[in-house]
Design a protein around this nucleic acid. Structure first.
Length: 405
DNA sequence: CCTCCACCGGAACGTGAGGAGT
DNA sequence: ACTCCTCACGTTCCGGTGGAGG
């Protein structure tokens, strides 16, 4: 008795099966994606007959169900291939992690139980191994490249090689499915790759609030106990997510976190206010996590912006101002001072992460620069930044810096 | 209409860590 | 022990540019 885990072990009063709300979950049915599923299935059907399907590019913003749909079709195709006895393999690669030519080949070869080191081999060696593995297996291989744009940003060699590989294979054929959330990414490609890759295009439009509602309702039935959701919960989640470009992942997160918050408060039901709390919590957690995992130099840049923000009346700063502050800070903290060129890149990264806003503006006679401002609450950033022991010394530094200059 | 500021951002290159083969 | 890879992170060099002020 009195064990600290006793209370926590008790069965949830809110959730029936929380996993259904996780983004990795592929449901048995995908509402409002019938059209896309059909196009994909149509395009891939030749694989079952031993022919080579066209290459496909799938477009759509985050949370429009691209990955879920493709994985769903992948599963169905595998089943079908099993039944028909057709030799058809599917490889799912996430290019956010597998983001170079080397890694793509290595990942596929490994799934065909070849052993390839993380790094070390010349790329053409891995390429050979990759081809041998495919040829040994024979049949048709569908390579799914999730977030292809990440792969392209580091040079389009990988796609170039992949799109031409069929002429070098004896027994096997491959076709590529690229998933991208950037509609313009093909324009950065070599025209030859572009025409080969984009034989077929499928677009995923964002969900509207009504569609999000359907999705949430479908999952909520499985995820929650009967009757714990108050009526306004799902519409609220749908509405919030619809505001953020119809991102279904956001909507599901909101619902899950709202449930968790209700559970923690020992509330018997999930109410609308839990959704509002969840919205704030998700944003704060995201910011905190992003800031925490920033490299030291980027943290320093962010600290500079934070200090400027606290010292000046205005809220937007030029690259020069930020760089000057950065130099002072890193000297004070005894950290190598990087060049301004490097810092502009770091600033762009912070911008891409959504922590700051950086827009290039021209001030005419007075030059051209980025206008930089913090785009998240400074309190969250500050508390996380000064956790870093190397930066904690900076917490009380504001006045000193001002004086030493 | 031209100038010229204060940067932007591409390209090429260097270094050093991490790993493999011989 | 030595050679040969990739890759992350920086630096150096430099051509390019929107628009206020002359």
């Amino acid at each position: 008795m009195g064990n600290i885990f006793e209370d926590l072990l008790e069965e949830s009063k809110i959730f029936e099966n929380k996993d259904v709300l996780r983004p990795s979950y592929v449901p048995g049915q995908l509402p409002h994606r019938g059209e896309q599923i059909e196009s994909l299935a149509c395009a891939l059907a030749p694989a079952l007959r031993g022919e080579t399907p066209s290459n496909i590019v799938v477009y759509g913003k985050t949370g429009t169900g691209k990955t879920a749909t493709v994985r769903y079709v992948e599963r169905e195709l595998k089943d079908a291939a099993c039944k028909v006895g057709s030799r058809c393999m599917l490889f799912y690669l996430n290019c956010e992690i597998i983001d170079t030519q080397y890694r793509v080949f290595a990942a596929v070869a490994r799934q065909l139980s070849k052993s390839v080191p993380m790094t070390g081999w010349p790329t053409d060696h891995v390429y050979q191994e990759f081809k041998n593995a495919l040829d040994a297996e024979g049949g048709c291989a569908v390579i799914i490249l999730d977030e292809v744009d990440k792969l392209v940003s580091k040079g389009d060699e990988a796609l170039y090689t992949l799109s031409r590989i069929n002429s070098e294979l004896k027994n096997a054929r491959i076709s590529i499915i690229g998933i991208s959330n950037d509609l313009t990414f093909t324009e950065r490609l070599d025209p030859r790759v572009k025409s080969s890759l984009g034989q077929e295009e499928i677009v995923f439009p964002p969900y509207n609030a009504v569609q999000l509602y359907d999705i949430l309702e479908q999952r909520a039935k499985v995820a929650f106990k009967e009757g714990v959701l108050e009526e306004d919960v799902i519409p609220l989640c749908a509405a919030f997510a619809a505001q953020e470009h119809g991102d279904a992942r956001r909507a599901l997160d909101l619902l899950r976190v709202a449930g968790e918050l209700a559970e923690r408060q020992n509330s018997p039901r999930v109410r609308g206010e839990h959704v509002k709390m969840a919205k704030n919590k998700i944003e704060a957690d995201r910011v905190a996590e992003v800031v925490r995992t920033l490299p030291l130099q980027s943290k320093l840049v962010l600290s500079s912006i934070l200090l400027l923000d606290a010292e000046r009346r205005k809220r937007r700063f030029s690259t020069g101002e930020v760089y000057n502050m950065y130099r002072k800070l890193s000297r004070y903290a005894g950290i190598d001072v990087l060049t301004q060129r490097r810092i502009t890149d770091l600033i762009s990264e912070l911008d891409a992460l959504g922590l700051i806003n950086a827009v290039v503006i021209s001030k005419g006679r007075y030059g051209r620069t980025r206008e930089i401002s913090l785009s998240v609450p400074s309190a969250i950033v500050k508390s996380v930044l000064f956790e870093d022991y190397k930066l904690s010394a900076l917490a009380g530094v504001r006045l000193k810096v001002q004086m030493t200059l």
